[in-house]
Design a binder for these strands. Structure first.
Length: 432
RNA sequence: UCCGCGGUAGCUCAGUCGGUAGAGCGGUCGGCUGUUAACCGAUUGGUCGCAGGUUCGAGUCCUGCCCGCGGAGCCA
């Protein structure tokens, strides 16, 4: 019996006879010669069936096998420049585990609506496979970076009694007779946790019932939220730029083949090295007024075209800081002497990918926080525990949230975030 | 939620002025010892999104609804 190996390790078995467990990606029938692309989740290899080199029954199976049938293929490994992957398997035996009938996704073109309906099968395609592998590396890279820099993973709840940032964009559910909500952010809990651990992060799914229908929104998305005690806005930007550049460089190092599969121009990614440029909101408004938006008023939030114009001035991600207080969350620390702006900062990715991080320095003063909760018409009783944090050892602290899907879309150079998560949840879309 | 575009074969689409429902791919059968989304020949395949209306006659015109795509606002 030949040993069972994975295709990613095939280079270590040149000249040996091995067995692969996999699925049929595509097949070319040349009569007495069959070219069979076999994938096994770790990679793809071309298996070649010559009529003379194998038992007649096995050759007949190779002849009738269909796209996405599951198979057991045995043969000798050979380096061959004519193969797309550099290696070939000269088949000596071949068996079908299950013969697939009428696999819906063909090697030809399909519309995005059809592919989304078949997302559970679409994940088998080379491009989707590459994207999800890069996503996995980005997540691992984030967690490694944080774990190596003194952050403790402290999980925050998904079912919550109230809104973190207020408002109507929450998914409501019934919690034994009282309303509960799916989390929009772990941040408020993070603020409690840093007073216990100093530096923490939470990492998990986040839910927003926004009726938004764009290439950068999902109703369920994953976010990593680091938070640090005794840290300023500037400290947060230092941490975020180091983490983001590490993520990008790690993907470049480990996923050249996958980046090629998604046709990413990696010259952009090679430039993503800290430090990142920092631009105040004031200067960003001036920049917009000089670059196609002469009437843009100070005090308004940026839309997608504005973010694109700003980020297009730079070859790496750019921080925009000190946004106007009135359109940011209630907990943002005001800038000393200029309360109309706050110690917040967003990170805009280049090439028009827009905001991938939002964060800032949190308010320290109990009195001001109570006032803001009132101004934002938030239910005070839901925030009693949060206000406790300003009574028992309050310190300057800062943190941020990085959106995984937007980051993956940017790193992979994708048009839409829907391809960056295995099963995207979007407006009115929850199948499969 | 608003604006725009669309829904015809399993998939991607064409269908002119209202007059017999089309192509390519896929599937099936046959051929081929170097294919890369193979190629060649044959063949198969329809609730024209749904409901109603106008008409001798509707894929085509009208009304309503459903669904999809793109964009906006909001955000990560």
């Amino acid at each position: 019996m030949a040993p069972v190996v994975r295709i990613s390790d095939i280079g270590q078995h040149v000249g040996q006879t091995v067995t692969l467990h996999g699925w049929i990606y595509n097949r070319t029938d040349k009569g007495r010669l069959q070219f069979i692309q076999v994938r096994d989740g770790s990679g793809t290899i071309q298996a070649v069936a010559f009529k003379k080199n194998m038992p007649e029954a096995a050759f007949d199976e190779a002849r009738r096998v269909t796209q996405e049938s599951s198979v057991v293929a045995t043969g000798s490994v050979r380096e061959d420049p004519r193969s797309p992957t550099g290696y070939e398997l000269d088949l000596s035996d071949f068996a079908i585990v299950q013969l697939a009938q009428d696999y819906p996704i063909t090697p030809k073109e399909h519309g995005v609506g059809f592919l989304m309906e078949h997302r559970h099968l679409w994940l088998r395609s080379a491009r989707q496979h590459a994207i999800i592998r890069i996503r996995a590396t980005i997540i691992r890279s984030i967690r490694n970076w944080l774990d190596d820099h003194g952050f403790t993973l402290v999980d925050t709840p998904i079912l919550t009694p109230s809104a973190a940032e207020g408002t109507t964009t929450l998914f409501e559910t019934d919690y034994f007779g009282t309303p509960a909500y799916l989390t929009q952010s772990g941040q408020l809990y993070n603020e409690a946790n840093i007073m216990a651990f100093g530096k923490v992060y939470c990492f998990g799914p986040t839910f927003r019932a926004e009726k938004s229908k764009t290439r950068r929104h999902l109703t369920e998305f994953w976010m990593v939220e680091p938070e640090m005690a005794f840290a300023t806005l500037e400290d947060y930007m230092d941490v975020a730029q180091d983490m983001v550049s590490t993520i990008v460089q790690t993907v470049l190092e480990k996923h050249q083949a996958d980046l090629k599969t998604v046709e990413r121009d990696t010259t952009w990614l090679e430039k993503v090295v800290a430090p990142f440029p920092r631009l105040s909101y004031d200067d960003a408004v001036a920049l917009l007024q000089q670059n196609g938006f002469p009437d843009f008023p100070w005090g308004e939030d940026f839309g997608a075209p504005h973010e694109t114009t700003i980020s297009n001035q730079y070859d790496r991600p750019v921080f925009v800081y000190h946004y106007p207080t009135h359109f940011k969350a209630f907990y943002m620390e005001p800038v000393e002497g200029r309360p109309e702006v706050c110690r917040s900062a967003d990170l805009l990715a280049p090439e028009g990918y827009g905001e991938i991080i939002g964060g800032g320095q949190r308010m320290t003063s109990l009195e001001l926080l109570e006032q803001r909760i009132q101004e934002h018409k938030l239910p005070r009783e839901a925030y009693e525990w949060y206000l406790d944090l300003r009574k028992y050892g309050s310190v300057p602290h800062s943190g941020f949230g990085l959106g995984i899907e937007r980051t993956v879309a940017w790193v992979c150079g994708l048009e839409h975030v829907r391809e960056t998560i295995p099963y995207p949840r979007m407006l009115e879309k929850i199948y499969p």
